[in-house]
Amino acid sequence: MSHLCQAIPSANTLSPKVPIVLTIAGSDSGGGAGIQADIKAISATGSYACCVITAITAQNTLGVQSIFPIPLPEIEAQLDSVFSDLNIVAVKIGMLASSEIIKLVARKLKQYQPKHIVLDPVMVATSGDLLVQPGAITSLIEHLLPIASVITPNIPEALTLIGENPGHFNGDIEALSHTLKTLPTQAILLKGGHLQPQDASIDWLISKAQVDAFSSERINTHNTHGTGCTLSSAMASYLAQGSSLVDAAQQAKNYLTEAIRSADALNIGQGHGPVDHFYSLHRSA
């Protein structure tokens, strides 16, 4: 089934009680990805964002200069703090740099049981920098995939999760989708942005029962820093607002497309700049 882009729902259509979305991820000092992108995307799509920071990165549009994982007791304290006070409906998970952090987050989410969990298996930054320890991938599959409502890998990340070399991928999405169904998770939103060259940008929502394709215009820009963070956060936001998994994927795809369309107008940094999370505000101005 193919879905065409539709208008982004206005925040004015939400119920008076704004749903709360928690992002668990690393901080990007450049502001384009990670926690910063998550909070922007969740806010721009009409939900309330809170956060748990798992790592501090020295990062800009040119690359990642250093990574400092937050000590486990401090991550646990953050999780207990927000869950003990806030009615968190959905959780987005991004960068978890080590197996120990992954196991802790999984344990706490099983304790608090939020309704929706969107897992973005962040492994490599847009610049190509590795963001996780090699052993963390196994822990991710074992501890977090089984409790996720949906995972949102790009094609290289998806291939890594099934133990295949991304450099050997032949472009067969049907075969890849079939293999991805064997992963221990409910659904996979496979991001097709790495498929080049194409006129359209296509993502696939893969579940045990079916595969839905979401197509949008491919926009020619180098400013794509934080696209994965943005898409998964927007999807968590729409799930928190009551959208179905298919509708949330479509709404998030629409939002990201417009954020990418306006990215060049920001003119941020010397490398891969960020998308324009608040494009609607900038356009109206």
Rank of each mutant, 00 (worst) to 15 (best):
Ser177Leu: 03
Ala240Phe: 06
Leu183Met: 08
Ala148Thr: 04
Pro156Ile: 06
Thr54His: 03
Leu189Arg: 11
Lys253Asp: 06
Gly273His: 15
Val211Ala: 13
Ser47Arg: 05
Ala77Arg: 14
Ala7Trp: 05
Glu258Pro: 01
Leu130Asp: 11
Gln186Lys: 10
Thr23Gln: 01
Asp120Phe: 08
Leu159Phe: 10
Pro71Trp: 07
Ala265Ser: 14
His143Cys: 11
Cys50Asn: 14
Thr23His: 02
Ser280Arg: 15
Gly63Arg: 10
Pro166Ile: 13
Val246Gly: 02
Leu189Gly: 11
Met1Ala: 14
Gln251Val: 01
Ile137Arg: 13
Asp247His: 10
Glu76Val: 03
Glu157Ile: 11
His272Tyr: 15
Gly242Asn: 12
Ser215Val: 15
Tyr48Leu: 09
Leu180Gly: 09
Ala263Gly: 08
Ala37Asp: 05
Thr221Ser: 14
Asp276Lys: 06
Glu258Asp: 01
Leu14Val: 01
Ile24Leu: 14
Met95Pro: 05
Gln133Trp: 00
Asp80Tyr: 08
Thr224Ser: 08
Leu96Phe: 14
Gly32His: 09
Pro146His: 07
Leu231Glu: 04
Val124Tyr: 00
Ala234Trp: 15
Ile88Lys: 15
Phe214Gly: 02
Pro134Tyr: 03
Val211Gly: 12
Ala259Gly: 09
Asp199Leu: 11
Ala263Val: 09
Ala58Leu: 08
Ser201Gln: 06
Trp204Asp: 09
Ile88Met: 13
Leu231Met: 08
Ile67Asn: 10
Ile20Lys: 13
Ala33Tyr: 01
Tyr255Gln: 02
Val118Gly: 05
Ser139Phe: 09
Lys208Gly: 03
Gln241Trp: 05
Leu4Gln: 13
Asp212Met: 02
Pro166Asp: 14
Ala265Lys: 15
Pro184Gln: 06
Pro146Trp: 12
Gly34Thr: 02
Leu130Tyr: 04
Asp199Ser: 08
Gln36Ser: 07
Gly228Pro: 02
Lys253Tyr: 12
Ala58Tyr: 13
Thr257Glu: 03
Ala97Thr: 15
Ala25Trp: 00
Thr257Met: 07
Ser127Gly: 10
Ile101Gln: 10
